[in-house]
């Protein structure tokens, strides 16, 4: 029982990050029409930019300790938004009308470009990255109806969960109640219809890319203290983010968040059983196969509303 609680305490924040990653991937898939294989890699470059900015602030003696981190975060986020807009305007816009496959190939190519750039400009070394909330972990200890309980909760995970929650709620609000959110959903559902009401679909696509990559940078900054900073730091997160999006159903954006949480917890629950050690990823992908076979629209896909 204690092990299960501990698995949830570590798995939920981890899963929230997969979920945010998956949300951005599903957003680009639904609105801009491609599966972005370079999602985590562009964010990785932004994390490197964030780290360099921190080191620069510290090196110049302008800021100290945590102030440098918080001053560098906006730089990283903005660089993510800029990457998103540039990818859309310089690459995607030119091939959008050709075929979805060409967009897909470009994102695969970008993956290599971002990884190569990171190796070239920075280095393949692992560098440490500061936590948002440093300090000793929380320890919940006591005896209750469940018997002797002792659960450790990492302090930084509190920041992870709060940020994930705030982002999820604000994205839900954006999509549901704002004009641009409605335009993003409309563009994904019918691009010709969207243009018929005067929506500039090219502009919507740029906004979607900017939002999605910026979210991936947030994930990168939150996950960096654990993975440390290196060119493939977000490979696993991206893979499980795509998985979260599949699990949640690409047709429902917020399904990806739930999908992420399920994967995050599952990963840690599998850890409880020594016999399954090392099979976490295999089990998760087996789950995906089951979902694709039995409920290909995703387990959180809305029931109605799809009609030719």
């Amino acid at each position: 029982m204690n092990a299960l609680l501990q698995a949830i305490a570590i798995g939920v924040p981890q899963g929230a990050l997969y979920g945010l990653m998956g949300f951005g991937i599903a957003l680009i898939f639904r609105s801009a029409g491609t599966l972005n294989f370079s999602h985590g890699y562009s964010a990785m470059v932004s994390v490197l930019i964030t780290l360099s900015t921190i080191q620069w602030f510290l090196g110049m003696g302008w800021l100290e300790g945590h102030a440098a981190l918080f001053a560098a975060i906006p730089v990283g986020l903005i660089s993510g938004a800029v990457f998103g807009v540039l990818i859309d305007i310089l690459l995607m816009r030119r091939v959008k009308h050709v075929s979805p496959a060409s967009m897909l190939m470009i994102t695969l190519g970008l993956l290599l470009v971002f990884e190569g750039a990171a190796n070239l400009i920075w280095s393949p070394d692992y560098e440490s990255f500061p936590r948002i909330l440093p300090g000793a972990p929380f320890v919940f200890q006591g005896a209750g109806v469940l018997g002797e309980v002792r659960v450790i909760f990492r302090r930084n995970d509190l920041a992870v969960m709060l940020i994930a929650l705030v982002i999820s709620l604000s994205m839900a609000g954006l999509m549901k109640y704002t004009k641009i959110g409605l335009a993003i959903r409309a563009r994904g559902q019918d691009p010709i219809g969207a243009q018929a009401v005067g929506i500039n679909t090219n502009r919507v696509d740029s906004i979607v890319w900017a939002i999605a990559i910026t979210l991936a940078v947030v994930v990168g900054i939150l996950v960096a203290p654990i993975t440390r900073v290196h060119p493939t730091m977000l490979m696993n997160t991206q893979l499980l983010g795509i998985t979260a999006a599949v699990l949640g159903g690409f047709s429902s954006l917020f399904g990806a968040i739930w999908g992420g949480l399920i994967i995050g917890v599952l990963e840690r629950v599998v850890d409880i059983f020594p016999a399954l050690d090392g099979y976490e990823t295999a089990i998760i992908f087996f789950l995906i196969i089951l979902v694709l076979v039995f409920k290909p629209e995703g387990i959180f896909a809305p029931r109605q509303g799809r009609k030719a």
Binding site: Q189, G193, G305, R306
Partner: peptide
């Protein structure tokens, strides 16, 4: 072909 937004 109408081009309405089916999910809205």
């Amino acid at each position: 072909n109408r081009r309405i937004f089916p999910g809205l």
